[in-house]
């Protein structure tokens, strides 16, 4: 019997959730016996190659590319998990949600004390994705089946959730594994 496949991605996040996944430490070796990895930043599979049992999404949506990737995950994953505060509630990137985007861009590319930008340009090449007006948590863009909050969720939280899912049991997080910070 083939093993269930797992895909992971980081959208508008800091990668800390993926790092926390690596913090399962030696259990990684157990995990790769249980599952096959599909698209993930830790391998070189650039797009989901076949149906996946589990999709793990870190980060919310701050640009058009994030939305496209999130939709790719929704379309190809049986259970889609938003992991980490950025995915579940927007997180730190959402701090820009009540500031006009133009002000954020100005501060970074025009006003900074070390900025050398005589023509006052801002990054706008067609090669870089358009920014969304606001940063959106994942469940406001696609249906999310499971939420694992935390900044990041601890390795034990992720391990508890993944092993429950893989054995077909409901995810039950003990008190010490449910945190928002």
């Amino acid at each position: 019997m083939s093993k269930p496949r797992i895909a992971t991605t980081s959208l508008a996040g800091c990668f800390g959730c993926h790092m926390s996944l690596l913090d399962i430490d030696e259990r990684i070796l157990e995990l790769i016996d249980l599952v096959d990895f599909d698209r993930s930043p830790v391998d070189d599979i650039k797009h989901i190659s076949q149906r996946c049992a589990i999709g793990l999404v870190e980060g919310g949506c701050c640009n058009e590319e994030n939305v496209n990737v999130l939709r790719e995950f929704r379309a190809n994953c049986d259970t889609l998990i938003a992991f980490g505060d950025c995915a579940t509630m927007g997180g730190i990137p959402a701090l820009r949600n009540n500031i006009p985007l133009e002000e954020c861009v100005d501060e970074a590319y025009r006003a900074g004390v070390t900025v050398h930008n005589p023509e006052k340009i801002v990054p706008d090449d067609p090669e870089i994705p358009l920014l969304l007006d606001k940063v959106y948590p994942c469940h406001e863009v696609v249906k999310i089946d499971c939420f694992l909050p935390g900044c990041p969720p601890s390795a034990d939280t992720l391990w508890t959730a993944l092993t429950a899912l893989l054995s077909g049991k409901p995810i039950e997080l003990p008190y010490e594994l449910l945190k928002y910070d």
Binding site: A12, I92, V105
Partner: peptide, 29 residues
């Protein structure tokens, strides 16, 4: 090409200084 943008320089404005070491580390996990 670097394709993401956050805006830390702007949205950190107004926050109290003692929060900054905890807030700004979320640039990078």
């Amino acid at each position: 090409h670097i394709v993401e943008f956050r805006g830390f320089e702007r949205f950190i404005q107004g926050r109290p200084y003692w929060e900054v070491p905890v807030l700004v580390q979320r640039l990078c996990g």
